[in-house]
Amino acid sequence: MQTETVFDPSERIITIKYSPERYDAFPPAANAWMDGRITDLNRDREAAAHALLLLAFVSGRFCPSRGCGADVAGSLRDLFSPRNVLLEGVDLSPARIPSGIRTAILGDGSYRMAATVRVTRPDVVFKLSESAQTTLAGPRNMTISSNFGLFSPGKGQLNALIPTIAAALLFSEDAGLGRLVLPVNDLDQGEVELIKRLTALLAAVNIAVDAPLLGKELHTLSDLLLDPASLELFFAEGHEYSNTPDDLPDFWFVRLLWARRTGSSEDLDEAAARLRSFSEAGHFFSPREQDMIRSGARTHM
């Protein structure tokens, strides 16, 4: 897969073009784009961003837009494991590695994010939006208008965040980012392997990855969450297509966890029943979430 970063004449839109080769899959859109202007774009971070964005579609060979340095080449190759991907354009000459000091939490509008915010106190909330017509870039919030979300490599809490990580990498130098916080808690085996490779790759471009809730028992999150009513606006902002938080499984997980905390068996039953109906209606839940839904959570109290 050959990639290229193109700035449109107004420099308002960044387009990532790609040319699939013999073993590659064709990505789901003609190109990937973000609304917004980037002034500083480090070559290695750009290569890492392209690799993440096209993670599910590369097989055989990967030729990032401007190549990459020797520091990042190994972890970039490993990212695609168990695929044996040939990396092209590796430059052995020494090069500057950018650094940053700000912490960004990657927004997915989930209850995990609501809990993670309270643990990490990030400097900036960074998220993607497919329906926003323009990018919002402020000191505390960055909402990037983009089609990157289409390129998610699959289901799962980490997979869903991969396009956001790619976008954050592209903006990282301008936004002074040095640490990305991922609101993930329960990963499948493939994602567990992926987060290790991802952490190594981002470390090679001077960005730390933190997942403070990863592996924690779900019920321990209840201490970190505000009461459901206080989170309604949070969920409305995080799920642009939805009319009411009542339609969101994340909202009902908060209610479930809050009910556990308050000991309200009626609320607990209602939340568990509602989550079961979401599950039947095709919503994705991690194995740990499924366990909690199945058990009705009552046995864990």
């Binding site: 590659d24 064709f26 599910a56």
Partner: peptide, 9 residues
């Protein structure tokens, strides 16, 4: 490949 699946040797 055209439908979005990779070929992996």
């Amino acid at each position: 490949r055209r439908s979005g699946a990779i070929l992996n040797w």
